[in-house]
């Protein structure tokens, strides 16, 4: 969860994405993301990455192997003792599910962020509408479902069980869109009174999910 308890991030990398994958027991590793980023920068794009941790770990071991040059880098990152309660996010049934290209979503969020700091997302049978109003004026982007025969990832798909209208903070949505590089499509799940789910699907059923709590309607 973030500092102000407004957003949640959940990332799942399924065991099928790894080869080999061996995990004898469930363990929780507390890793400082800043340290992890620093170490990962040392890797090159084509490297093979291996993660290892002992039974009662106080370091996690990362090995980068470059198959072509036979270069072997090994890093140990100290672990943190994160004594946090694990937040279980129940899989709820969402009233509306929208799939759209992630670049499109990123564009919409960036454009509307210029106008105002919050966006109202409305999902109806006709399509999904993002509108915002700010000091200089107001703006809105409407997307209708369409299928692109040539490129499946440009599809916009809407599944609706009841109309949904919620307001969210654009500051966080823009941050979520930074994951657009991971997947061509992004899935937005909305339901009234329930946090928004922004999901980037990864290979082998893995995912990166962001949850964002809706804003309360009584704004000035």
């Amino acid at each position: 969860m973030d500092n102000s308890h407004v957003a949640l991030v959940s990332m799942m990398l399924k065991s099928e994405s790894f080869s080999p994958f061996r995990c004898d027991r469930n363990i929780a590793l507390g890793i400082n993301l800043t340290s992890l980023t620093k170490v990962l920068r040392a890797a090159q794009n084509e490297d093979i990455l291996t993660l290892k941790a002992e039974d009662s770990p106080d370091v996690v071991n990362l090995v980068f192997e470059d198959p072509k040059t036979d270069r072997f880098s090994e890093y140990d990152i100290k672990l943190m003792d994160i004594d946090q309660e694990h937040l279980g996010i129940p899989d709820t049934e969402y009233a509306a599910t929208v799939s759209l290209p992630s670049a499109e979503f990123q564009r919409i969020c960036r454009d509307l962020n210029q106008l105002s700091e919050s966006v109202a997302i409305e999902c109806t049978k006709e399509g999904v509408k993002f509108n915002c109003s700010g000091d200089i004026g107001s703006g809105s982007v409407s997307l209708r479902p369409h299928t692109n025969v040539d490129d499946e990832t440009q599809n916009v798909e809407i599944n609706l069980s009841e109309p949904v209208a919620l307001t969210f903070s654009l500051k966080y949505l823009v941050n979520f869109c930074k994951a657009s590089g991971l997947s061509k499509q992004v899935r937005l799940c909305l339901s009234n009174e329930v946090p928004l789910l922004v999901e980037y699907g990864l290979a082998n059923n893995s995912y990166l999910r962001f949850y964002l709590a809706p804003k309360i309607g009584d704004e000035e």
Partner: peptide
């Protein structure tokens, strides 16, 4: 800044015992 941000959004943890933060 901080309190407004915390106050304007609902609970993101669906299993929270109380509606308020």
């Amino acid at each position: 800044d901080l309190l407004k941000e915390v106050a304007q959004t609902q609970q993101v943890d669906l299993a929270a015992k109380q509606r308020f933060k």
